[in-house]
Amino acid sequence: MTDATTDVTTDAAVPLVELDGVSKHYGNVRALEGVSLEVHPGEITCVLGDNGAGKSTLIKIVAGLHQHDAGTFRIEGDEVRLGSPRDALNRGIATVYQDLAVVSLMPVWRNFFLGSEPTKGAGPFKRLDVRTMRETTHAALLRMGIDLRDVDQPIGTLSGGERQCVAIARAVHFGAKVLVLDEPTAALGVKQSGVVLKYVAAARDAGLGVVLITHNPHHAYLVGDRFVLLKRGAMAGSHAKADIALEELTRQMAGGSELEELSHELRRAPAPADAPGD
């Protein structure tokens, strides 16, 4: 990752995804203002920010759910305006949402191929290639280290971490070039977060460019190569890993002086009368 910090002016370093001064307004609400970021193959770009910082808006623009109002959005050098998630997928951008990733009641194998189902036969006899779908799902998950004996079980019966992994395995299997992950570790325990981060790293090693959206600087710092900080819809900083330490990232992420003020307030607060309810 030596070229991660170098200036990208050479042809060899055209980013997979490049946002330059991108803005988005909802009516008179400024959701995103002048945000820039780059995603390179084999690298993880982390987007950090608190609630309401504009992370969701950013992800929706990259995923093709919303269109930006100003600035430029380039995919492999081409300026684009994505009209739909299908557009984004066709250009190799796969997005894994925190809670929208899967249809809980459907079996794992149907979820795995949802939207890109392989078929066999022709005309009215064109049908799902169920055997291939089952076997491929099992094999693709096994490669990611998940051994499901029964790919027929509803995906809702899997744990949160496993569901994220299925979604990541799906994106890798369908040849995504850019993987966008929305808060993949937000609802998970420590151990499962570790498992998910391992697969994020595995996707990076497979040569994908990864955008990791999170509000956890510790998780971000473990795997990230670049860090973009968002605050109230605007850029609050952009750093390569070599230029910033975890402590500084955490401090900036938490809002620096605001955090100091908060700790000051908390120190002076009286001890609570009783423990919080069960």
Partner: peptide
């Protein structure tokens, strides 16, 4: 058929994967 189950089960997830 896969799409019918998906739009009823979780329309947003279905839309996100291109259904």
């Amino acid at each position: 058929g896969n799409w019918i189950f998906a739009v009823g089960g979780n329309a947003d997830a279905a839309r996100a994967v291109g259904v």
